[in-house]
Nucleic acid binder design. Structure first.
Lengths: 215, 215
DNA sequence: AGGCTTTAAACGGTATACTAAAATTTAAGC
DNA sequence: GCTTAAATTTTAGTATACCGTTTAAAGCCT
């Protein structure tokens, strides 16, 4: 019953998990939407088990909330928890930038510069369709420079959890975002830990939609 | 262990998870020990499913490492990853202390003082059997003062992951630890965010066994 | 004896089945 | 009509079964 083409080797759980994360982050599911194991499994053509495990893993990442005997819903952090998330994320992004500025591995920095250029190029062209991907790529590449894998994992889940609090479709905001990226990179290259940290922290706060804190 | 009425049945998954966490943190399982689903399920008298889920959740917390098709082992972070963990944890403990100093909710601070006193009392009596519990209680109580739940969760998993890097059986070290706790609390009460943060960060680094960084 | 196949056992991934708690609907009483 | 209770459906928790990998063991050859 299973077997899409080819890759019989990726665990189903992972595929389901990635598919669900995608759909949650795309906003395909509203916050609070119930994610019923049976329905999803049927829709995806797999048994409930992989779905169940995927939901639990997403819960561990904070994208989904599970209440025993009541199932999973797309999590909707309360207003005050949103600021909590932002606060933690800002702190960790600051640490990340600080470590990047400390190590500033030349090869990784080159890679990071390429990502920055790619993002800026699309902005020049007025193409904002890939901005989310570009943005993720930048932060991931910055994580590579810092070299702290634990930190990178943590930041990634926090970024996912907070992604719905940002808007990436406002051209003005996007330009500002990438200006900040360039500033951070400059500080990293200069090895200025303190500046890199401060810029990275502010970068997080700046990207928050003003109304997000109070809805 | 199970409490009030109406607490019908806690999900088996949770019980298995807690039991396994306990045993891992107690050092009953060496690092690298294989955790075979079938064996554990048999030993605990449940089916493989709760065990499987528990293992996955522990993997999300970083206590266990799962390799697809190869099963779970008690995770043994490489030496460099240990310092990564410490670095992240120190940063978040600093944030935690900073927020605590900012909010300094009187009731929670009173609770925190009680915890501090309890720990100090046991040290006076020369009773070190409960130090791990006291230590956890202090950091948990400090988290309550800060009021950031997200942060608290994160710190708790990091504390679990790093707990084997510390020694809590050396009386000299323990005394030092609790002197630091008192210092942190004093800074929190004084509302000195910066000092509280620095002390909390150092507190983490100080507690690391010197040889832990290189083993 | 030591390496290379071949075979058997162990184990994880997934599917299916069953049970009991919630949620929902329907029925009953005021 | 509205509230409450009983019946029905939905759904999460758990158990069992099966298959394909992976790992360990047993032969086999030189």
């Amino acid at each position: 019953m299973s077997l899409a083409i080819g890759d019989a080797h990726t665990p189903l759980t992972k595929m389901v998990k990635d598919a669900l994360r995608q759909r949650i982050l795309n906003g395909e599911f509203e916050q609070g939407t119930r994610l019923v194991e049976g329905r999803i499994s049927e829709e995806m053509g797999v048994s409930r088990m992989p779905v169940r495990e995927a939901l639990r893993e997403l819960a561990a990442e904070g994208l989904v909330k599970i209440i025993p005997r009541r199932g999973a819903t797309v999590s909707m952090p309360a207003a005050d928890q949103k600021m909590d998330l932002i606060e933690v994320r800002a702190t960790l992004e600051a640490l990340n930038a600080r470590l990047a500025a400390r190590r500033k591995d030349p090869d990784r920095i080159t890679a990071l510069q390429r990502v920055l250029a790619a993002g800026e190029a699309d902005i020049e062209k007025g193409d904002f369709s890939e901005m989310r991907a570009h943005n993720d790529a930048f932060h991931t590449a910055l994580g590579e420079v810092s070299g702290n894998v634990t930190l990178q994992d943590l930041i990634r889940t926090l970024r996912d959890q907070t992604s719905m609090l940002f808007k990436q479709d406002d051209p003005v905001k996007v330009r500002e975002t990438w200006r900040e990226h360039a500033d951070i990179l400059r500080a990293v290259i200069a090895g200025d830990e303190e500046l890199a940290a401060i810029l990275a922290s502010r970068h997080v706060y700046n990207a928050v939609e003003p109304e997000a804190a109070t809805d």
